[in-house]
């Protein structure tokens, strides 16, 4: 049996928002160490991986591994019906065909229970190899969201170049071109670690979608290495992280 309590529904809302634009259905794998979700988007260009460890939950119990096939649009509707500061408990039986969500207001004066039908999803699970990234950049998540939004006005593709001097985002299209450069700041709000310089091209539409996770964290980590997908990681409080991997565009 699974029983997992989030102190605030707001966090679950933010997690669902960070997932639902990129994947429509996915399996949430629950074990005694926490919850994991991994899915490719429909076009198999990107992959999202969510990890929530038990430490973050107000209460967490999972006696036997359980996989919950979720329709994210449906889950979004259910969490939307609750108040952000409600506590929410997810409950599922060992061989569940439904997930129970129980919302409880602050003073416990209002409770709301929803049963969500689960799906039987046959999903491929991909092994993500350990990677030594050549460039690791950390910046405010709002800055990254702003850059992705501004870049996508100019072109479908965004070129990311990273050197010891800084990180540069470039877009070149019919309308003209855009270049945004950020350098390491003494304030520490932008940090850039470079082993070797790298330039790669990515689909701006996907980068933009990843920034749906911005409300989850003030900070975002961007990792690049030659010939491997870009990693964009948002930490989630004491729970863990949401990671987005994006396959690069390569010369024909």
């Amino acid at each position: 049996m699974l029983e997992a309590r989030f102190g605030e529904t707001l966090l679950l809302k933010k997690i669902v928002d960070a997932l639902k634009e990129i994947i429509s259905q996915s399996t949430l794998d629950c074990t005694e160490t926490g919850m994991q979700l991994q899915s490719m988007d429909n076009s198999h260009v990107s992959l999202v991986a969510l990890s929530l460890q038990t430490e973050g939950f107000e209460k967490y119990r999972c006696d036997r591994n359980v996989s919950l096939g979720l329709d994210l649009k449906s889950l979004a509707k259910v969490v939307k019906s609750a108040s952000g500061d409600d506590a929410v408990t997810l409950t599922a039986a060992d061989k569940a065909d439904k997930l129970l969500l129980s919302f409880e207001s602050d003073n416990k004066s209002r409770t709301a229970d929803y049963e969500l039908k689960l799906l039987n999803l046959d999903q491929d699970h991909l092994g993500i190899p350990e990677t030594n990234y050549a460039c690791i950049v950390q910046m405010p998540s709002s800055e990254f969201a702003r850059i992705c939004r501004d870049m996508s006005m100019f072109s479908e593709s965004v070129v990311i170049s990273c050197t010891k001097q800084g990180i540069k985002f470039s877009a070149n299209g019919d309308m003209g071109s855009a270049n945004i450069k950020l350098s390491d700041t003494s304030k520490g709000d932008i940090t850039i670690d470079v082993d070797e310089p790298i330039t790669q091209s990515f689909a701006g539409r996907y980068l933009n979608t990843f920034t749906r996770a911005t409300p989850l964290s003030d900070r975002v980590k961007i990792c690049l290495a030659p010939d491997v997908p870009l990693l964009v990681e948002y930490p989630i409080e004491d729970y863990g992280y949401i990671r987005y991997y994006l396959a690069p565009k390569v010369d024909e």
Partner: peptide
């Protein structure tokens, strides 16, 4: 001209 690669070509099925 650049081509979009697939994420599945980098990460192998388990």
């Amino acid at each position: 001209n650049r081509t979009q690669t697939s994420i599945a070509s980098y990460f192998k099925k388990e």
